[in-house]
Design a protein around this nucleic acid. Structure first.
Lengths: 230, 230
DNA sequence: AAATATGTTTAGGTCAACCTAAACATTCAC
DNA sequence: GTGAATGTTTAGGTTGACCTAAACATATTT
């Protein structure tokens, strides 16, 4: 049974598709365990859901080799992602939500908001291209340009770096990054990388000058940058 | 187990409580069948849910005599009602939703929106007192003034009447009423009530003059009015 | 007071989405 | 190429929210 038109999907199904999309994007096809870990669900439950998704034609599954989105599945995932990110934009820009609490709220609303609502919000915002954490917003017809970015932990020392995107899942982390002045658009320069997974020391440009900061590798892996062109 | 604090309730539970609140408001305690009819659910299913709600201390149930909200249950119902109505206001006033589609969208969102979101919307609107259909919005601490109103089908002929509220469940009905110029705030006068449940002829004041309209009793029962004081 | 109509509940079943514990398959290291 | 570690699936169970069909209780009419 191939996934044909835009049928309504349940909240959990949308969450699985989003997770699979994201895992696939990073590297190999998503494994049962990866999905389980990311959604905080037992591997056994994932096994069951994977079968259902495959039956619905949203994914293909080669046992022990992982799961891939079909075209239909990818479209469904991108629709949900669009909702999520438009909501995040709207909540921060129009309703004044703080950076770190937006993800959680959008997570709930994305399953309930109609296409019409999302499009009304999008127009009110002038069709934003990125969400508040720097993630690209898929278009109505399911296109995204996913740029491959360096993580701050892999970036070279000495160069001027522009922060492009940060992982938005963990509210506390986001609060901390904001405190350090690290958000999409910020300019930073790595001064030193301590060996053995040690802290990274960097210079963060700020309106009134700048500051030296040190962050751990774990946190640096959540920050995506590109080498500043100019 | 009495309902103490503000626990999260499932969507269906919130829908039951809203329905019971509304039925109770009109008259006698809500019967199993009334609830079933209103929610388009089988009476048997309602029986089951009623037991669960009673176990949770949200309602009291005297078999064959009906169901009543407890204080906790009433508060929960009013919280949901507040969400719903704030959402309706926000969707129409800020996002330009048409009158007749707002109810449906709010019905979905009310179960997903956090208290914080609702309060942010409420402040953005300047704490509205009524939703777009004229229904009063409960306050944060669970107060509503429910005014008893006449239906247009019961109202006396000849008097100047002000439309205060219309039932919002049926989108087509709403569209039709809007066409006739009948919405909260409109001024009307009954010219004639045909006998045997016949049509009601009325004069509807409109910006550029007014018009004579005829509507059936069924529709007139959905329109609440008061005698215009001035 | 019996018969009928109406309203309610019980019995038994389904489906989605989870769970744990146990069995099974694959890969990797030695 | 055997054994351990890792990853996946099956078996069996739970919960919420629904269903139909049948049994039961109350109310109404005659």
């Amino acid at each position: 049974m191939p996934a044909s038109a835009t049928q309504a999907l349940s909240g959990p199904v949308e969450d699985y598709l989003k997770a699979i999309y994201d895992l696939e994007r990073v590297g190999e096809p998503a494994s049962t365990n990866d999905i389980a870990l990311r959604l905080a669900i037992s591997p056994a439950s994932v096994s069951g859901m994977v079968r259902r998704l495959a039956d619905q034609g949203l994914i293909t599954h080669e046992p022990y080799r992982g799961v891939r989105l079909t075209t239909g599945g990818r479209h469904a995932a991108l629709r949900t992602l669009r909702r999520h990110r438009i909501l995040e934009c709207y909540l921060t820009e129009v309703l004044g939500y703080p950076w770190d609490r937006v993800h959680e709220e959008a997570e709930q609303l994305e399953h309930a908001a109609s296409e019409e609502l999302i499009e009304r919000m999008a127009s009110a915002l002038g069709d934003p291209k990125q969400d508040p954490h720097g993630a690209p917003i898929p278009t109505r017809d399911g296109r995204v340009e996913e740029v491959v970015l360096l993580t701050l932990s892999d970036a070279p020392a000495g160069e001027r770096l522009r922060v492009r995107r940060v992982q938005d899942e963990d509210a506390e982390r986001l609060r901390y990054l904001a405190e350090l002045g690290i958000r999409p658009g910020s300019l930073v320069r790595i001064l030193d990388k301590a060996p053995f997974e040690g802290p990274i020391t960097l210079w963060v440009d700020e309106p009134g000058g700048g500051a030296t900061r040190a962050i751990g590798v774990g946190l640096a892996e959540q920050v995506f940058v590109e080498i500043a062109s100019d």
